[in-house]
Amino acid sequence: MISKEEIKHIADLSMLNLSEAEIEKYTENMKDIVEFANSINSLDTDGVTESAFALDSYNVFRKDEIKESFDRDLLLSNAPSSNGEAYSLPSMTV
């Protein structure tokens, strides 16, 4: 089961400020999600090899060849703020 404390912890890790009402709401939402995911436990997995992937695919590699990078202005235009060269943020301890 999901507790309000867990929701607060996850929000903290993502640096989200949630109001008390939001915490209530997300706790309920998350309960539904986890319950839905838990339904997988009802499957009989005896004799099935453990795997992290659904596809039988492996070794998807690329050659070590340089491709042209992206236009910087275009990349920076995705950010709320930049100085024309770098993404600009409120002060972090560097």
Binding site: N83, Y87, S88, V94
Partner: peptide, 11 residues
């Protein structure tokens, strides 16, 4: 990096 102009942080 520290941004000397704005006091903010540059990435």
């Amino acid at each position: 990096a520290h941004d000397n102009y704005t006091g903010g942080t540059l990435v």
